[in-house]
């Protein structure tokens, strides 16, 4: 199964496919694929339509010059975890949404906008989810530059 997924994604994504790694995860296998951020929609479509993958969530990790998005998918029948990693440069924090392909991704993309400030283009409902509406623009609480103890005076 994992070979099939690798082959299919490598073919379809072309230049967007960067790296492939197979690691154990919870006694089962896990696939970790690094793609470019532009290829996220295509990859998600392939996983969902061709491999009946279930979208779990999107994690986001901040690095010095980019924010890494990790799309966690699961192919339950095979017990296979498929994780797509995509880097979004801090100079241009924009990425295409996958919420129109997977409605289940709507909430997490709104959350990532709230806490990391990544804008998801063409998102069906681009509103705040967990922060208040009057939260200061440009302040993202999960960034390393945000200090928790700032206003405890």
């Amino acid at each position: 199964m994992e070979d099939k997924i690798e082959k299919k994604l490598r073919e379809e994504l072309g230049d967007h496919f960067i790296e492939y790694e197979l690691k154990p995860s919870n006694k089962k296998k896990g696939i970790w694929i690094r793609i470019s951020a532009e290829g996220n929609r295509k990859a998600a479509k392939i996983l969902i339509n061709a491999f009946k993958a279930r979208f779990s969530t999107t994690s986001s990790v901040e690095h010095s010059s980019f924010i890494e998005l990790i799309y966690h998918f699961a192919i339950d029948e095979e017990g296979l975890a498929v994780n797509l990693k995509a880097d979004v440069l801090k100079t241009n924090l924009m990425v295409e949404t996958i919420a129109d392909i997977v409605p289940g991704a709507e909430f997490i993309e709104r959350e990532i906008y709230d806490i990391f400030g990544i804008t998801f283009r063409n998102h069906p409902n681009p509103k705040r989810l967990i922060l208040s509406d009057d939260w200061k623009e440009g302040e993202y609480p999960l960034r390393k530059s945000f200090r928790v103890d700032k206003d405890e005076t």
């Binding site: 006694k27 089962k28 279930r54 699961a74 339950d76 029948e77 017990g79 409605p103 991704a105």
Partner: peptide, 30 residues
């Protein structure tokens, strides 16, 4: 249920046979 990627008893009540204890066994579930 598939579209919204629901999990747990909600998914199982809608005919999706998914259970992490069987699909990705952890602890001593296997």
């Amino acid at each position: 249920a598939k579209k919204y990627c629901v999990v747990g008893p909600v998914a199982r009540a809608s005919g999706l046979k998914i259970d992490i204890r069987k699909d990705y066994p952890y602890a001593a579930y296997d």
